[in-house]
Design a protein around this nucleic acid. Structure first.
Lengths: 322, 322
DNA sequence: CGGATTATGCTCATCATGAGTATAAATGGA
DNA sequence: TCCATTTATACTCATGATGAGCATAATCCG
């Protein structure tokens, strides 16, 4: 049963950081449009492009987000366009071919409010293996490592096995390979191929839930893949663009800024060096004002220095050589 | 007259480097599909997504490219999805809303052959201001700088004027701002807004040709914008991914490798430092074999070291602090 | 007042990068 | 044969960025 018609959808991965955790704006009980494959699983805000009404893709997206979540987006950039056949299982039943143009949007702390059917969820509820701030997560050793090893060792040609091993080493930073925080999508995809995320079984068998191992909470359709794409992109971009400043209020202490970066990158940073990077690097300037309450010595409030865009080529916060 | 129907198109920006110049595979005399807006202007290979037939977007693209140019693509990555209303002028006359998913593809030197209606053209025929290998191009001073200054100074609010000046400084590296080779799209867009590229007038007035200043050869529709997007992405990527090696034969001398990078980046590099970067950086290894003919001392042939992907995080060739 | 806690300043070793000098190995005439 | 020319390759040196840590300064709390 071949799909004939075609729908271009617009999806938004909307990110904020509050309480030292990266958050994602989800739509639960996704209307009739998503009541398949993951039943009541959380979904990303979504709406079809209106060929007659939406002047640009981005405007269409902003319109849908406003309608579904009550939020007026600030920073937004196009992420990726997803179009594999059957990414929406309804295609198998004659539904339209579903292309999704995904955007990454950043929301400033303080502007987070759950309006309408929307709800803020933690990124790492869905991708728990991506948070290494407290050291390598337990489930990497207990669940992922052995399962990935099985996947590597699966029967077949020795050459293919070597290729799988190489790939596993690089994506997860095993056996001496350097771990790269931004390979979020590659990690998700490997876990998917290894059958470790529920969506994999779901897509293959049309069965509802997966078996025992449940690695992070599932989302509707391929929305976890979109999330992973977004987090990977964001982590990469942090290093060479001043995107963090889209996530923090106009003034902030350096520690708060650092915590936001750490929350997104999923790793801890060296405090003094972070300060040096961001201050000597001309990314921020002090306001002279000091933050009121709080334990410990009071910290100065800083603001973003727009001029840095003129001066430097790579204006990120760097995550060390990660 | 609102567009009702919707077509998802697949476009390919296919790049190769030969004779020290970056090339683009174009389709001239673009079939009935592009016989508008730029008449016989060169176009990128294009074909609509077949919702029933194409399993993935990339496979659809590869199919169209094979059909139109006879080329089997190797490396290809998704670039961007373009969907502004009226990017295809036929929409104004009731034609379908045209979304284009663009891909960047790299072709190895030696595999370039013009099959079918396809023809290899120089990148810098279309974007002449992007090649600074022989120093800043003459037309930057003679044409672009004065016109951009006019655009900056156009009447209106002082604040808006300051914003334009800032933007011009950053995109073109004026008045002390650092010039960033990878801002290709930003430069194109500024020239477009300033009315300096023929497409701008064409789109606005539906008139055929522009007036006096003709800054580079025009292409069909917004294809020059796609090119600019591709070149910018490629230049950026060169720095942190080993993409050059998709463009050169399996073995090469270091000078040839350097020339390829220079051709793409549009700038000259320091020879000894390039060698150090690429050799000590573990990107290449010598083969022991020496290249036969040629003037001067014969050079060793090198090959790409795949293992570098395990070892380093950023595996590009770096363009200095550019 | 003393411990706990956070902010901020500074040092040091290492490594990457920009720039330039020096030498080696080929070619093609004079 | 020898030398000017051309390209390849090896080193040096100054500078700047980065990882790691030590030291001191302000606060709060009891």
């Amino acid at each position: 049963m071949a799909a004939r018609s075609l729908v271009v959808g617009l999806n938004a991965v909307i990110v904020a950081v509050t309480d030292e955790a990266p958050r994602l704006l989800t739509v639960e009980k996704a209307g009739r449009d998503l009541r398949v494959a993951g039943a009541d699983a959380p979904a990303l805000p979504f709406g079809p492009l209106d060929p007659a009404g939406h002047r640009t893709l981005e405007l269409g997206l902003r319109g849908w987000v406003r309608e579904q979540t009550g939020l007026d987006l600030g920073y937004a950039e196009q992420l990726y366009t997803f179009g594999d056949r059957h990414r929406d299982p309804r295609e198998r039943a004659g539904g339209p071919r579903m292309i999704s143009i995904a955007y990454l949007a950043l929301v400033r702390e303080g502007r987070v409010s759950g309006a309408g059917r929307a709800r803020w969820r933690g990124f790492y509820e869905f991708l728990p293996w991506e948070d290494s701030r407290a050291g390598r997560p337990a489930l990497v050793d207990s669940v992922i490592a052995p399962a990935v090893a099985r996947w590597v060792q699966q029967p077949g040609e020795a050459k293919a096995r070597r290729a799988r091993r190489e790939r596993a080493d690089i994506t997860f930073g095993l056996r001496g390979a350097t771990f790269a925080t931004e390979r979020v999508l590659e990690r998700y995809e490997l876990l998917y191929e290894a059958g470790l995320v529920p969506e994999a079984r779901r897509d293959r068998t049309r069965a509802g839930r997966a078996r025992g191992t449940r690695l992070g909470e599932p989302m509707a359709l391929d929305h976890r893949r979109l999330m992973a794409t977004a987090l990977g992109r964001l982590r990469g971009k942090l290093k060479y663009r001043p995107v963090v400043f889209e996530l923090v209020p106009p003034t902030f202490t350096l520690l708060r800024l650092q915590r936001v970066v750490e929350a997104l990158a999923g790793v801890k940073l060296h405090k003094q060096n972070f300060r040096r990077l961001v201050e000597k690097g001309g990314l921020v300037e002090g306001t002279g004002v000091v933050e009121p309450q709080g334990v410990g010595r009071p910290a100065e409030l800083f603001r973003f220095r727009r001029e840095v865009l003129r001066e430097r080529r790579a204006t990120g916060v760097g995550l060390g050589r990660r």
